[in-house]
Every structure is written in C-alpha cells, then in structure tokens.
Design a protein around this nucleic acid. Structure first.
Length: 115
DNA sequence: AGCTTGACCGACC
DNA sequence: TGGTCGGCCAAGC
C-alpha cells in the first residue's frame, strides 16, 4: 500500500460534490458549477461529467441554453419529469429546461434580501 | 516542455 | 434561430 493514488483527480472530486449539492427540480450549468467552485471553467466541468458523471445526478448539470444532454435526452427528460423541473417547449416542440426558473445559484445569495 | 482535446459560454451577425 | 469565433483551463500524450 505504498501509494494512495487517487482514482479521481481532486478537481474532479470537487465537481462531483458540487453536482450532488444541486437539489431535485433544479439545475446548474457547467459554467455555474465552475464559478461556484471558483476553479476551472465550463469545459473542465464538462469533461469531469463525461468521465465520472454517472456517479452523481448528472442530469442536473446542463448546458447554458437549457438543452438536455445530447445522447441522453430521454433519460434526462424522464428525470426532469419526475422532479418537476421547469421545462419549456420550443417552436419545434422540443422540451428544454426553463433556465429562468430551473437554474440554481448554489444558494449564493441566500442571505440577500433577508434583512 | 508544448500541443490537443473537450457532456462549454458569451458575443456577434 | 442558427452558425462562427475567441476564450477558457484541466488532463492526456
């Protein structure tokens, strides 16, 4: 046991932890997660999710345009429906996330407007 | 050491 | 609404 090599890079672990924090019925964009962490950027978050996202609620981390993850749209939509995540229909009738309502800021401004 | 690659983003047209 | 472009930064080679 000479080595404690982490299977996950530390950064990846933080990203996954952030994803697990997102409450049901809400979503964060890749950029939001990066900003919340204060590390990396959207592309880095995306890469982590691509590699290890299966271990966390991956459907709650989405692109900024609210479009469901390509390739997993049926599964994502099933989750959104189960969690009552705000959706919205486009002109084509394709369901997309209603980002104005579904986007979660990580409780960043939890205290504001309280006093 | 320097590329290259991304489950991206915002600006712009 | 859809396409391009530059910027972004960790990981892999």
């Amino acid at each position: 046991m000479g080595r404690m090599s982490e299977e996950l890079p530390a950064y990846a672990e933080r990203v996954l932890e952030a994803a697990e924090r997102i409450p049901p019925g809400r979503v964060m964009t890749y950029g939001d997660v990066a900003e919340w962490l204060g590390e990396g950027g959207p592309r880095q978050v995306g890469r982590v999710m691509a590699l290890y996202g299966g271990a966390v609620p991956w459907w709650r981390v989405v692109r900024a345009d609210g479009r469901p993850l390509p390739g997993s749209e049926p599964r994502a939509l099933e989750r959104y429906r189960a969690e009552s995540t705000p959706l919205r229909l486009t002109g084509d009738g394709e369901p997309r996330l209603d980002m104005r309502r579904a986007r979660w800021d990580g409780d960043a401004g939890r205290d504001e407007g309280h006093m």
